[in-house]
């Protein structure tokens, strides 16, 4: 587990330099255990607890497992052993984080740095200011336009994510996304809108219920996995959850899982009867 502080160190060392750390907690431990671990170790990077990998491309048969995805979107490293050299080689290719392919002229350096630091509002202000100068070259104008477009794209992607999340009752994601907009577009109309949306979510009892249900089912999931619960307990627990959160979309979402488990239990019981004859 000494890798955990090391990951924090990497995060700090390469902050704003084009490194994005994502992690997956790949063991069946309860959420509370993981949360305590995160707090004790001061983990600051994203941690996924539930994911889909139906084709099992990400080999997690042996932990820890590391992959580096390079600037070309291809796997640059996988497996065990030291990966820092590969990491540094890839990071050396990133001149302006988030702006791959943009020809940043000296006049747009500060805008590019603001973009790398995710201060998108500032990046936009600086890009527009550089473009407004009467002696701006064609290259500068092109770079300013490219940065402005990247900012607009980022905003569009975030707003789309937040709005779709609301429609789909994925309120944790919606709330977190509006918070990102509020933070990264500070002092703009976008931030004000995000603040208003966050207030609405806070006041929305249905949204609060959905967030509670989403967390509850994932906590339950992991608890049952951790204790290697028998299928009867799975079925019973899921049914109790569905009843408690019957006003939530999650009650419907777990129905197929309950049905499937009941079918499997029935099949297993029948097999057992046959074997006993």
């Amino acid at each position: 587990m000494r890798q955990l502080p090391h990951m924090n160190e990497l995060q700090e060392k390469y902050a704003g330099k084009g490194l994005h750390i994502f992690t997956i907690y790949a063991q069946n431990h309860p959420v509370e255990h993981i949360r305590s671990l995160v707090k004790d170790k001061g983990i600051k990077y994203p941690l996924a607890l539930s994911w889909q990998d139906e084709d099992q491309r990400w080999d997690m048969s042996s932990l820890p497992a590391v992959w580096i995805i390079g600037t070309d979107g291809k796997i640059a490293f996988t497996g065990k052993g030291s990966y820092e050299k590969v990491l540094e080689e890839q990071l050396a290719k990133v001149k302006y984080p988030g702006l791959g392919g943009v020809n940043v002229t000296p006049e747009l350096e500060s805008a590019a740095k603001a973009f790398a630091a995710r201060d998108y509002a500032q990046a936009l202000r600086l890009a527009e200011a550089a473009a407004e100068k009467s002696d701006a070259s064609d290259a500068t104008l092109a770079a300013a336009e490219a940065i402005s477009e990247r900012v607009a794209d980022r905003l569009k992607a975030l707003k789309n994510r937040a709005e779709v999340a609301e429609v789909e009752n994925a309120w944790r994601l919606a709330e977190a996304t509006w918070q990102v907009i509020e933070r990264r577009f500070a002092k703009t109309d976008e931030a004000a809108e995000a603040a208003a949306r966050l207030q609405k979510i806070k006041e929305n009892k249905k949204a609060q219920l959905e967030m509670e249900a989403e967390t509850a089912i994932h906590v339950l999931d992991r608890d049952l996995q951790f204790k290697e619960a028998a299928i009867e307990e799975w079925i019973d627990s899921y049914k109790k959850f569905a009843e408690k959160y019957k006003e939530s979309v999650w009650a419907e979402k777990v129905k197929p899982a309950i049905e499937r488990m009941e079918e499997d239990k029935k099949a297993a019981d029948e097999e057992k009867k046959k074997a006993q004859k």
Binding site: L10, L19, I21, I34, A65, Q90, V94, G100
Partner: peptide, 12 residues
């Protein structure tokens, strides 16, 4: 995309 991603799967 265009930046560098480090993905780590781990346990405790």
């Amino acid at each position: 995309r265009g930046d560098v991603i480090l993905l780590k799967a781990w346990g405790s």
